[in-house]
């Protein structure tokens, strides 16, 4: 979780990831942020986030992102 937070803070240091609960729905993250976050997650956690995973509910909160990462690691 800490590594994930470092990645997120690296992508958008201005965002309060701990408290924002609608990162996508409220357009806090833009499409470039998503591209970067997905690339970084794939590389750092050795997973493959697919198009079908690119749903707002997977990226709206840090908890949801962590759940996606752990789910894909278990599947992999």
């Amino acid at each position: 979780m800490e590594e994930m937070m470092q990645i997120l803070k690296g992508v958008r240091p201005d965002v309060d990831f701990e408290n924002e609960k609608l990162l996508i729905d409220n357009k806090v993250l833009d499409s470039f942020d998503i591209i970067t976050i997905v690339s970084e997650f794939n590389e750092n956690f050795d997973i493959e986030i697919d198009v079908e995973d690119l749903e707002p509910y997977n990226f709206n909160t840090i908890e949801a992102m962590w759940e996606l990462i752990t789910k894909l690691q278990e599947e992999g």
Binding site: S31, I34, I35, V51, E52, E55, P56
Partner: peptide, 25 residues
């Protein structure tokens, strides 16, 4: 669109892509 990509994923061994648009986009 999703079905096409799903089928494409099944028939190939790993996918390179340049699209990270959210479904709404």
């Amino acid at each position: 669109y999703r079905a096409l990509l799903g089928e494409n994923k099944k028939t190939h061994n790993g996918i390179d892509k340049n699209c990270f648009l959210l479904p709404s986009g």
